[in-house]
Amino acid sequence: METFEECLCRRSGLSMSDVEALKAHMTRMEILKGDTLVRRGGRNTDIYIIVDGIWRASYVNSDGNDITLWFASKGDMLFSSWCFVGNMPSMIALEAMSDGVVYGISRSDAEDFFMSSVEAARIGRRLYEKEIFEIERWLLSSGAPRARERYETLLDEKAELLQHVPLKYIASYLFITPQSLSRIRAEMARGRKKRH
């Protein structure tokens, strides 16, 4: 099974020594299901890297609906760009969907580390490039013409979600109702039975 360090290296292009250098400046934290690292309206400027667990980023739209923006798991970063970049109250919440472990670092400590050397600056750049890539990928997949295609992509990339995330949050992420998601899941199950 891939460690979170290996996962982070694979996804970000960092070397194992880069990851170890970053971890040396971070604090390991155990998280319980339901814990919130960033609250809507809060000002948490820390950055977290997931060792284990499933996370959900959400916001409340103008109609008062709780909307899931994205899910994150092992090797992914967690932070509010409103807080970290804009120094403003967060528009999103980051909530644990399962028990887990993260490494965290404050904004000031992260900036000090990234400015300490050319190598440290490269580590920061690679991490931010990964996040920009993931955002663009998410935007493109959310524009997929069919909810079933978006659901299949989600299963391919983060199958472990089904063990920890209520279906209403997955439906919200896919921009469909829970009833539509149930129909898609039933159709896929019937398709699998026909093949066997």
Score class of each variant (00 low, 15 high):
residue 15 S to F: 00
residue 89 P to L: 07
residue 78 L to W: 13
residue 72 A to P: 12
residue 120 A to M: 07
residue 187 E to V: 13
residue 8 L to V: 05
residue 100 G to T: 09
residue 19 V to Y: 00
residue 39 R to S: 02
residue 189 A to G: 01
residue 100 G to P: 13
residue 116 S to M: 02
residue 146 R to P: 03
residue 22 L to E: 00
residue 54 I to W: 06
residue 123 I to A: 09
residue 91 M to T: 08
residue 167 L to I: 12
residue 192 R to A: 11
residue 48 Y to P: 03
residue 160 E to I: 03
residue 20 E to V: 07
residue 170 I to S: 11
residue 82 W to T: 13
residue 193 K to T: 05
residue 75 G to K: 01
residue 158 K to I: 07
residue 29 M to C: 11
residue 48 Y to V: 09
residue 65 N to F: 03
residue 97 M to L: 02
residue 19 V to A: 00
residue 154 L to P: 10
residue 84 F to W: 11
residue 172 S to H: 01
residue 54 I to S: 15
residue 34 G to S: 01
residue 38 V to L: 02
residue 43 R to K: 08
residue 161 L to G: 12
residue 178 P to Q: 04
residue 18 D to Y: 04
residue 150 R to V: 07
residue 99 D to S: 07
residue 80 S to Q: 08
residue 50 I to F: 12
residue 157 E to M: 04
residue 45 T to R: 14
residue 104 G to E: 07
residue 72 A to C: 03
residue 92 I to H: 06
residue 130 K to N: 11
residue 103 Y to R: 00
residue 48 Y to N: 04
residue 139 L to T: 13
residue 81 S to A: 05
residue 56 R to H: 13
residue 1 M to E: 12
residue 101 V to Y: 06
residue 33 K to G: 07
residue 185 R to T: 05
residue 147 A to H: 07
residue 63 D to A: 06
residue 35 D to I: 03
residue 140 L to R: 11
residue 112 D to W: 08
residue 65 N to W: 11
residue 81 S to R: 09
residue 142 S to V: 13
residue 104 G to S: 08
residue 54 I to N: 11
residue 125 R to I: 13
residue 38 V to C: 05
residue 51 V to H: 15
residue 104 G to R: 15
residue 90 S to N: 05
residue 4 F to H: 15
residue 41 G to N: 04
residue 109 D to K: 14
residue 58 S to Y: 12
residue 49 I to E: 10
residue 161 L to H: 09
residue 153 T to H: 12
residue 182 S to M: 06
residue 7 C to Q: 15
residue 195 R to H: 05
residue 50 I to G: 09
residue 37 L to E: 01
